[in-house]
């Protein structure tokens, strides 16, 4: 039996993105974020998730990100980071074949590639690269 790889298709920071389901812990309803005084760049604050504080990404810190709208849900990544999402589109299967190189995309530093869905190339977020970006932002503060 071949393994089917699912993606979460969502809207965030004014654009549509894809997230491999394997990188997700769960998707929960958005709740107010408690801002953290003097918190690190790229983190807007924390929410309580399963009894622990969960850092929530500040899209504004991602280079090239548009103005984020009000979040409806929170995608909880495996490395325990919350991504505020403005909406969910679906959970498509990842098409066969390699993803395209995202080097011309403004979000390239945090992408695993561009995935062809229908007639569009959508950015696939790479959580490890996103974390690396957050660490870089902190180190230059």
């Amino acid at each position: 039996m071949s393994e089917v790889s699912l993606l979460l298709h969502a809207r965030a920071a004014g654009r549509e993105i894809l997230l491999p389901m394997t990188d997700l812990r769960e998707v929960v309803a958005a709740s107010p974020v408690a801002p953290l005084p003097g918190g690190p760049p790229g983190i807007q604050g924390v929410v309580l998730h399963q009894g622990e504080f969960l850092p929530v990404l500040d899209w504004a810190a991602v280079p090239g990100a548009g103005q984020p709208g009000p979040p409806k849900v929170l995608a909880v990544l495996r490395p325990r980071l919350g991504l505020p999402l403005e909406g969910l589109v679906g959970t498509p299967e990842s098409p066969e074949g390699p993803w395209q190189d995202p080097d011309r995309d403004p979000w390239a530093p945090i992408l695993a590639g561009l995935c062809r869905l229908g007639d569009r190339d959508l950015p696939v977020l790479d959580p490890d690269r996103l974390l690396a970006l957050l660490h870089r932002l902190r180190s230059v503060r």
Binding site: A34, P37, I43, R80
Partner: peptide
Amino acid sequence: LRSLPELAHAPGIMGGSLQEEGILW
């Protein structure tokens, strides 16, 4: 007290506690 994860580490704050009015740092 619950400590903050590494990603949310903020200088001067060692953790937070859930209170009626929200999180107390």
